[in-house]
Simulated assay, not measured.
Amino acid sequence: MVVGIRRAGEGDREDVVRLLDEAFMQDPVSSWVFPGEEHRLRMHAGLMEAFFDLALAEGFVDVTEDGAAAALWWSVPAGVPEGEEDGPALLREAVEPANERVELIGRLTDSVHPTDRAHQYLHLIAVRPGRQGEGLGTALVDAVLERCDREGHHAYLEASNARSRDLYARLGFVFMGTTLDLPDGPRMWPMWREPRGVAGGISG
């Protein structure tokens, strides 16, 4: 099946945020950040909107032509930028200042994020419930990975469940060896992908 993909922009904000909110409402990590369902229903979309803004600022957002799936990527340079603003704290302030988990999830993922090589970071990928299993998510990821292979770029992500971990493994991502276990919460799997044809990699 050929899946049409386009680059999203500011005009897609409402539709993409709605898709992310719907797709991740019951995700283990979202449920950890916002443990109560009523609380999550009120606050979750704000976090997804903040993530959309970050992707536009730090990378790009790809969507399928029919709007049923979207992927948020960050283009991450090598090294730790000097004088960088405190992103996790700013995220908490923007989304929900009283919720320390909004900040903590950023700090924990930052702590395991590779810094030695530039890479494309797949931050989030969402497929509309009812459209899963059609290959839309794989098509979105493949489109970027093909470009990474052509241009010699690395890629990175954190899988938030065992099913997605296994899917990403089939796309060439390798578990880095150490899980990220959220306090009293779910497990995440940091995964790294070398461009095809390039030997080596990162091991945990």
Rank of each mutant, 00 (worst) to 15 (best):
R170E: 04
H44G: 06
R6Q: 09
F52Q: 05
T179W: 05
M188G: 05
D21V: 08
R163E: 10
A55D: 04
G135A: 10
T109H: 03
Q120C: 11
A89S: 13
L157T: 12
L145I: 04
D86C: 11
P129F: 13
G200R: 03
W73F: 06
L124P: 00
V112M: 07
L122I: 04
T178S: 12
F52S: 03
R128E: 00
A57V: 07
A199L: 13
V29R: 01
A89I: 04
D166C: 11
L140R: 03
N161W: 04
Q120Y: 09
A94Y: 08
D110R: 12
H154F: 15
L20M: 15
G172D: 06
A70S: 06
A89T: 10
Q132R: 15
G83P: 09
G36D: 14
G185C: 06
R40E: 03
A139W: 04
E146G: 04
V33P: 02
R150G: 10
M43C: 14
F60C: 03
H119P: 11
F175W: 15
W73P: 02
V112R: 05
E103A: 14
A143K: 05
V144I: 15
I5L: 09
D66L: 09
I5N: 01
I105H: 00
L182F: 12
V17A: 10
A98I: 12
G83Y: 09
M191V: 14
V198D: 00
A118K: 07
L56E: 02
L171H: 08
G200M: 07
W192A: 05
A169R: 14
G9P: 08
R163G: 01
A126Q: 01
S164E: 14
L90T: 02
V174F: 01
R170H: 12
H119D: 06
M25E: 09
V61T: 15
D21C: 04
V127F: 07
G200T: 05
V3E: 00
D110F: 09
I105R: 01
S160K: 01
L171C: 10
A55T: 05
V63E: 04
